[in-house]
Simulated assay, not measured.
Amino acid sequence: MSPTTSPTTTRPAPDLRSEIAELLARPTADVVIIGGGINGLATFRDLALQGVDVVLVERDDFVSGASSASSHMIHGGIRYLENGEFRLVQESVQERNGLLRTAPHYVKPLRTTVPIFSTFSGILSAPLRFLTHRQGRPTERGAALIKTGLTIYDAFSRDGGSVPRHRFLGRKASLAELPA
Rank of each mutant, 00 (worst) to 15 (best):
I38R: 02
P138D: 04
E19Q: 15
R87Q: 13
R26D: 13
G77C: 08
F168E: 09
D53E: 05
K108D: 09
A69V: 05
T132G: 10
S92G: 11
I78Y: 13
P27Q: 11
G76C: 03
R59N: 02
I34T: 05
G136A: 09
T112P: 00
L150K: 00
V32H: 10
V63Y: 03
R79A: 07
P27F: 02
T119F: 09
E91Y: 10
M1H: 15
G170L: 06
V52H: 00
G76V: 03
G36D: 03
G149V: 01
P115W: 05
S71W: 03
T148G: 13
A176G: 06
Q94W: 06
S67Y: 04
L41A: 02
G142T: 00
L16C: 08
A176W: 07
T9Q: 12
T139C: 08
G40Q: 06
G84A: 04
R26V: 04
L124N: 04
L100Y: 05
D60H: 00
K172H: 07
Y106G: 01
R111H: 12
F156R: 06
R101F: 08
R158G: 07
R45L: 12
T132N: 09
R101Y: 05
T8E: 12
D53T: 03
T9N: 11
T113H: 13
L16Y: 10
R165Y: 08
S121W: 09
V93E: 09
T28I: 09
L150Q: 01
N83T: 10
A180C: 08
T28M: 10
A176E: 15
V63N: 12
D46P: 00
V114I: 15
A180N: 15
G65I: 02
L99N: 06
T112I: 10
D61Y: 05
S2T: 14
K108M: 13
E19N: 15
S18P: 03
G122R: 01
S6A: 13
A155V: 00
L49T: 00
E177D: 07
A66G: 10
M1I: 14
D159Y: 09
A29N: 08
D60N: 03
R59S: 08
F117A: 06
S18V: 12
A173I: 01
V89S: 01
R158W: 02
F44K: 02
T5S: 07
D30Y: 00
S67N: 03
Q135Y: 10
G122Q: 02
D30F: 01
L100V: 06
R79Y: 11
R165A: 14
V57P: 07
L169K: 08
L178V: 13
G122W: 00
I38D: 02
A29T: 03
P164T: 04
I146Q: 11
